[in-house]
Amino acid sequence: MAAWRSFLRAHARVTRSLEADLIAEQRLSLAAYDVLLQLAESPDYRLRMTELADAVLLSRSGVTRLVDRLERAGLVRRSRVDTDGRGVMAVLTGHGLERLRTATETHLTGVVRYFSSQLARYQLTVLGDTCEKLAEGKIPAPSGDVDPATITTADSGG
Rank of each mutant, 00 (worst) to 15 (best):
V35F: 12
Y114M: 05
A24T: 00
T64H: 09
L124P: 05
G110R: 03
R46E: 09
D68I: 05
M49L: 13
L75S: 04
V111H: 04
P43E: 05
G110E: 02
T64W: 14
I139L: 15
T106F: 09
V67S: 12
T153A: 15
G74Q: 09
R72M: 14
V67P: 10
A120C: 10
G62I: 11
L92W: 06
P148Y: 11
D34Q: 11
T102I: 02
M49H: 01
A154G: 11
D82A: 13
Q38T: 09
A103C: 02
V81Q: 07
T125Q: 14
G85N: 10
L22D: 03
D145V: 01
M89H: 14
T106W: 04
L52M: 07
V63G: 07
A3W: 15
G74T: 07
R5Q: 15
L39W: 02
V81M: 06
S59Q: 03
D84W: 13
A135P: 00
A149L: 10
A53I: 00
G144R: 07
I23R: 14
D155V: 07
Q38D: 04
M89F: 15
A73H: 11
T153I: 12
V67W: 09
G94R: 09
G158H: 09
T150A: 10
R101E: 01
G144Q: 03
L8E: 15
R121C: 03
D129H: 08
M1I: 13
E51F: 12
V112K: 02
G158W: 11
G62P: 01
G87E: 07
M89P: 12
T109C: 01
D34R: 12
E136S: 11
V81K: 08
P140R: 07
L108I: 08
R78G: 01
L28R: 03
T50C: 08
D147H: 06
R16P: 00
T64C: 13
V91H: 00
S29T: 15
R13N: 12
T83L: 13
A40I: 04
V146F: 00
T125N: 15
T93Y: 08
D147V: 10
A55L: 03
Y33L: 02
Y122N: 15
L108K: 10
S117K: 14
K133M: 14
L127N: 02
H107T: 01
T153V: 13
V35D: 06
I151F: 14
T93I: 05
P43C: 00
R46G: 11
Y33V: 02
V91D: 05
A3K: 15
P148R: 08
L97K: 00
D44E: 08
R27C: 03
R80Y: 12
P140L: 12
Q123R: 02
L119V: 03
L8W: 11
L66D: 05
E41Y: 04
E19D: 14
M49T: 14
R72A: 07
Q38C: 05
D34I: 12
S42A: 13
